[in-house]
Design a protein around this nucleic acid. Structure first.
Length: 232
DNA sequence: AACCAGGACGTGA
DNA sequence: TCACGTCATGGT
């Protein structure tokens, strides 16, 4: 029976450390300028933390490449920082993040979150506090906690569900908390492991889980069996 | 040319 | 609780 830890080890061996979360988008060539492979222990600066939180909201149901475009224009429009963001007129903000899609909702969510972020005054929010913020759901909250604040919260996204479900680790009807429990009960309770786990799952899913039937070369035995089940 | 991206929220059963 | 519609641009 496959476990999250086994999957983690296989993925890490196959792809190496991913160094998420990408920060520094828009400062250099317009792509992620400062991935931190093998450098997880470095505490995030305040500006990195905010950029990660903004990215977490912008990437809701959206390809990261589109988020990069949004972050680049946000940066050009005065920088990805709380004061600058709140100063921007609605029109300008929505315009800057247009490429990331849902620009009307997301500009509202960014404002609401930024107000909350400033109230924190540098301290880390709890998960409960984050979930009360309008526009921040479970995945966005856990992304912020894990990558911006270095807290031990597993991030469960569509890719995680897809891979785990395909490999038989969870059922198709598992809730967000179900999947998180499976991971947190079995994986080493280590922040870099959680960060890498999620990043590796995304990297892997982008290669082999885009379209049915899934064919996973890293776990071939499970792959054929599940596909057969899906065809019935 | 449909389909999907590192979701969240509002609504009606 | 839960299924479903909505929000929207951009790549395959």
């Amino acid at each position: 029976m496959l476990t999250p830890t086994t999957i983690f080890e296989v993925l890490l061996a196959a792809y190496g450390p991913q160094g998420w979360w990408p920060v520094g988008v828009g400062e250099g060539d317009g792509r992620a300028a400062a991935y931190h492979p093998l450098d997880f222990a470095v505490p995030r600066t305040d500006s990195e933390r905010f950029e990660i939180c903004v990215g977490a909201i912008l990437t809701q149901n959206t390809a990261w490449r589109n988020v990069e475009k949004a972050l680049v224009s946000l940066h050009a429009a005065g920088g990805v920082q709380p004061s600058a963001l709140l100063r921007m007129p609605d029109q300008q903000l929505a315009d800057a993040i247009r490429p990331s899609g849902y620009f009307n909702v997301k500009s509202r969510r960014l404002r609401v979150f930024t107000e909350f972020y400033l109230l924190l005054a540098g301290s880390a929010p709890t998960r409960e506090e984050l979930l009360k913020v309008w526009g921040v759901g479970p995945e966005t909250a856990d992304s912020m906690l894990l990558y911006a604040y270095g807290r031990l919260h597993m991030v469960i996204d569509a890719y995680t569900r897809r891979i785990f479900s395909h490999l038989g680790v969870i059922s198709e009807t598992a809730t967000y908390d179900d999947v998180a429990s499976v991971c947190e009960a079995e994986l080493p309770r280590d922040v870099p492991v959680y960060q890498e786990m999620h990043a590796l799952l995304v990297a892997h899913a982008k290669r082999y889980y885009q379209r049915l039937p899934y064919d996973d070369p890293l776990f071939p035995q499970v792959s054929s069996e599940t596909n057969r089940k899906n065809e019935v």
